[in-house]
Design a protein around this nucleic acid. Sequence first.
DNA 1: GTAGGTGCAAACCTTTTGCAGCATG
DNA 2: CATGCTGCAAAAGGTTTGCACCTAC
Lengths: 151, 151
Amino acid sequence: MKPEQEQSIVENHLRQRGFRWTNQRALIVRMALGTHDHFTADELLDLCRRTDPRVSRATVYRTLAVLEQAGFVDGLDTGDGGRRFEHVLGHAQHDHMVCRVCDRIFEFRDDELERRLAAAARRIGFRNERRSLRVHGTCRSCQKAERGGRP
Amino acid sequence: MKPEQEQSIVENHLRQRGFRWTNQRALIVRMALGTHDHFTADELLDLCRRTDPRVSRATVYRTLAVLEQAGFVDGLDTGDGGRRFEHVLGHAQHDHMVCRVCDRIFEFRDDELERRLAAAARRIGFRNERRSLRVHGTCRSCQKAERGGRP
DNA sequence: GTAGGTGCAAACCTTTTGCAGCATG
DNA sequence: CATGCTGCAAAAGGTTTGCACCTAC
């Protein structure tokens, strides 16, 4: 999907729900959809400020909250109290592996996982609405560095 | 396993690694192992202060960090920036479902899940060391309340 | 005796909020 | 032109840190 297309999906969705489409929101949405990384609120703020230095941190947080509620953006906690966001539009459901050496995030997907979680929820009568799955460990290249590098 | 037994496992482990076994640590460990709930750092502090009002918040955090590193305690982020801890000694590996209505935490366990995660890690050459899996949704009794209660 | 641990208070970091003014629909 | 949104600055909440004193080994 093209960026402009995604942008107007978000715009229409928000307008239909009575939200206003302000310059700030347009900019924040553009930047959030344009990034393929997992970004923090602060990184997104910096990105936006390169275009318009007057965007405030509060507006970025408020807009991220709206986008998260609408399901366009997904927030993942990093395990150290912070959060990173990723855009969801046009992305399949997936989970994350986080390398504790280089902090890089790898995405993976497993359909059977979905089924197991659905079954586990059914067993205890829980209605499964969303999940946060993070595997911590060491990525391939950091394992190599471990073996190759000096002790 | 009896509490005193667990306590001395922790004591021995820490002593062997050159940590000192202080009154504060003994108290904090006793309280942490004695709780079957998922507690916050602050709740643990309160518990400890009932026995010794002079325990400081900093010491609780410092001790929790030591215990987490040693693998006796596991920290789970609650999704709203905070964390809760649980003791791991004598508990099988398990995951959590969090009810977004009543905030209660349900534990579940699924061996096949382990296998799928191991397989997914293998596919991308990742060494899987620990994980954080949290399913958000609505628990059985809050679903009932939803249906039964007024709209 | 000497690391290492503790308590206190202040610093930190990320996120939220109150409020007055602004801009969208 | 009414309401929702924004920017600012301050508050909040959870966690970490600097430092002087204390204590386990």
